[in-house]
Design a binder for these strands. Structure first.
Length: 738
DNA sequence: TTCAATTGTCATTTG
DNA sequence: TTCAAATGACAATTG
């Protein structure tokens, strides 16, 4: 027990120091990007070049607490781990009130008295967590929790403005504390752990749109002008929640908070930032904690976001209030709802949120947080506004918003990443593919396309030349036919081919018809251009080459001088020819493959009827036509597929953009909502503070609470009753969601 | 030579 | 029923 106590105390102190250090950190982006690595590595063990340094830091820290790294006994180790896990669970679930409590301590001389010692106790648990970190065996579970923890710390730091005094102090105390943070920064720049991939993505996202937007929002929030050491309270709250029982003595909380507050009072900017971060990140945190939150909190659901927001600004106002857990409960519910998704979500955001949330929750019944107000003040009916409990009048606007917001944030990260990548890729793809209009896609690049253009012209002029060539070639083509016999053999009977040759000879010669068809339908390039498919065909396949190829190849070299060059050209053209073209040439088909393929059925039949073609030739012609058309069809089909994919990609990008925009809008909305809650809270405080009993004494906020009735009236009811109602309302939404 | 991408081909379905 | 188009699957080609 003694050792445990000692560890707890020391742990609390350490944790407090860490929190203060975190508070010092100002740069949110940096913070976000850096995230967990250090702590995580510490916990998991050296995983990078920095590990050693980290480890040393940790050691130092531990030493500072009087625990020698080498002398860690199992009991202490496991105890610390258990405590840490408990604390974390509590933190995650409990959200808003913590901050409030701290505030109260400050303001109220009575409550404020409590102080540092309790906080130390809380820290103890946290310290245990640190010890655990050092521990050699860390399950995945722990690693996750640690991540969350580290993230939380970082978040806090990011939110909180630098407090030089605190920082130095903490550095001294922890020894390694600062280094750890630095390390985290370094890691963010260099280390990209697979484990942290999610977190990294989140970081990117945050740093990109969300983070900047948030940062801006935070700064803007300064409007409230409320000064509040948000970070500390939040942390503390989380810590306090580590305490087993939900019913924490207000005094204890106050005690805990007081020391922290005094030490780290930060400018209200921090509060706002903190709130913003909380609001954004709560969603993720909620997800993580779902199960635990449900267990821990019986209180009515509170809006995580609202609670978070309420924390900082409200603190001053809320001081008196010991509010209701109802708000907390609501938070827990929200978390539970999202929990399933949380696992899949990137860790970074969630982890950061977690700490915040817990802090709020810790606020306890106390008074704080807009959530509390909502839960406490409007439990019966208005309450709904705060959370799930929402009555008919105010149906959990926050809850719904929060839930969605969480989802959006999560998705936003993904989107940000995707947006960063996809647009470029998509644009490139579009340029590549869209520039080419469908069928003509390949034509320009492929040799066949060249041939096609040539073919079109050649075909037009070839009508006469080809006819003469064909007639002359008929006798000379025997060699050629033999050379192509192999191809022709494929799927075509060689026997018939030989027989058909003779018939084919007779067929050759009906030039007029042939030329006529050519002119009519396809010889004119302009016409081809008007016909997409034809154009495509012309560009994409080599059928048009046939005539010229045939001519050049089959014509006996008129001049021996240029025989060599012509042979080369013939070879080249032969290579350009398709198999069907070779077959057609071998079979002495009297018209070009282009015509065979592209002529309308009627014209095609007419063309065939004007020639005396053998069965083999007819069969080949039909096959050529079939294959040629199918080839174009295949190209079109592929192009359509590609276009479809590209369009889908574009649609996805558009949707992602819209989603990101909506998320930003939602964040803005939540901010405004938070401000409204704060106003309501302040009004509540004001009204409640003016209430006097028959003896002229003010009502104790711990015993009484204001509740809005459905008719708009405000009732002063015992807190127990208010809590019951809040719980009742909390269950309703749960059932509804089931 | 291997491999991925492209292109051609076949079989089948659809309108 | 025929034809053209579409499409999946496979083979051939290409870089």
């Amino acid at each position: 027990m003694l050792s445990l106590k000692k560890y707890l105390t020391e742990g609390l102190l350490q944790f407090t120091i860490l929190l203060s250090l975190i508070g010092v950190r100002v740069d949110v982006d940096t913070y976000l990007t850096s995230q967990l690595p250090p702590l995580r590595e510490i916990i998991l063990g050296p995983s990078s070049a920095y590990t050693q340094t980290q480890f040393h830091n940790l050691r130092n820290t531990l030493d500072g607490y009087g625990i020698h790294p080498k002398s860690i006994d199992l009991d202490n180790y496991f105890t610390a781990r258990r405590l840490l896990s408990q604390v974390r669970a509590l933190d995650r679930f409990q959200v808003p009130t913590t901050e409030v409590n701290a505030w109260l301590v400050h303001r109220d001389p009575e409550g404020s008295v409590s102080g540092s010692q309790p906080s130390s106790g809380l820290t103890l648990e946290s310290s245990s967590g640190l010890q655990d970190v050092t521990g050699p065996d860390n399950g995945v579970r722990e690693s996750e929790t640690e991540q969350g923890f580290s993230e939380d710390l970082e978040d806090l730091g990011a939110v909180a403005p630098p407090v030089s005094g605190d920082l130095t102090k903490e550095d001294i105390d922890l020894g390694a504390g600062r280094e750890i943070f630095d390390y985290s920064h370094r890691q963010k720049e260099q280390d990209v752990d697979k484990d942290l991939c999610d977190g990294a993505e989140q970081d990117d996202t945050w740093s990109g749109e969300g983070a900047e937007a948030l940062a801006r929002n935070l700064l803007v929030d300064g409007e409230t002008g409320e000064s509040f050491p948000a970070q500390f309270p939040a942390d503390i709250s989380s810590i306090t929640e580590a305490v087993p029982s939900e019913s924490e003595p207000p005094g204890l909380q106050n005690h805990l908070l007081s020391p922290l507050l005094t030490g780290t009072e930060s400018p209200f900017d921090l509060e706002q930032q903190w709130q913003d971060l909380m609001s954004i990140m709560e969603m993720q945190a909620m997800e993580v904690n779902t199960s635990a939150s449900e267990i821990l909190y019986s209180a009515p659901p509170g809006d995580p976001l609202s609670t978070n927001y309420s924390l900082a600004p409200n603190t001053p106002i809320n001081q008196n209030v010991s509010l209701h857990q109802a708000s907390l409960g609501g938070c827990s519910q929200d978390f539970s709802l999202f929990s399933p998704e949380v696992e899949s979500l990137p860790v970074a955001g969630g982890s950061t949120l977690l700490p915040l949330v817990p802090s709020n929750s810790t606020s306890l019944n106390s008074t704080f947080g807009s959530t509390n107000l909502a839960g406490l003040f409007f439990p019966a009916q208005l309450n709904g506004s705060a959370n799930d409990t929402a009555g008919p009048e105010l149906p959990d606007p926050l809850g719904g918003l929060l839930d969605e917001a969480m989802l959006d944030e999560i998705s936003l990260m993904d989107l940000a990443i995707e947006e960063g990548f996809n647009p470029v890729q998509a644009s490139q793809l579009e340029e590549e593919f869209d520039s080419d209009s469908g069928l003509s896609l390949d034509s320009s690049h492929s040799p066949s396309s060249l041939s096609s253009s040539e073919g079109s012209s050649s075909s037009s002029s070839s009508s006469s030349s080809s006819s003469s060539s064909s007639s002359s070639s008929s006798s000379a083509s025997s060699s050629a036919s033999s050379s192509f016999s192999e191809e022709g053999a494929v799927g075509y009977s060689s026997d018939s081919e030989t027989l058909d040759l003779e018939e084919a000879e007779g067929a050759v010669g009906y030039q007029p018809e042939y030329s006529k068809f050519c002119r009519m339908s396809y010889q004119d390039p302009a016409q081809l251009s008007c016909l997409p498919y034809l154009e495509h065909v012309g560009h994409n396949h080599t059928y048009n080459m046939a005539p010229s190829a045939l001519d050049s190849a089959e014509l006996p070299a008129p001049g021996a001088l240029k025989k060599g060059s012509k042979e080369k050209q013939a070879d080249f053209l032969d290579k350009q020819m398709s198999r069907d073209e070779h077959r057609a040439r071998a079979m002495k088909i009297p018209f070009t493959n282009d015509k065979i393929i592209n002529l309308p059925v009627e014209e095609f039949n007419e063309l065939l009827s004007k020639y005396q073609l053998s069965e083999a030739q007819l069969s080949l012609i039909r096959d050529i036509r079939r294959r040629g058309k199918n080839k174009m069809a295949a190209q079109n089909c592929r192009k359509r597929k590609l276009d479809t994919i590209l369009n889908l990609e574009r649609d996805v990008e558009d949707l992602q953009r819209d989603k990101a925009r909506l998320l930003r809008e939602k964040v803005e909305f939540l901010r405004s909502l938070r401000q409204m809650k704060q106003k309501v809270q302040s009004l509540y405080q004001e009204v409640f503070g003016r209430l006097r009993d028959e003896n002229g004494r003010p009502y104790s906020p711990s015993q009484y609470a204001l509740q809005y009735a459905g008719d708009g009236s405000v009732l002063l009811i015992p807190r127990t009753l208010a809590d019951q109602q809040a719980r009742r309302q909390e269950r309703k939404p749960k059932d509804r969601r089931k």
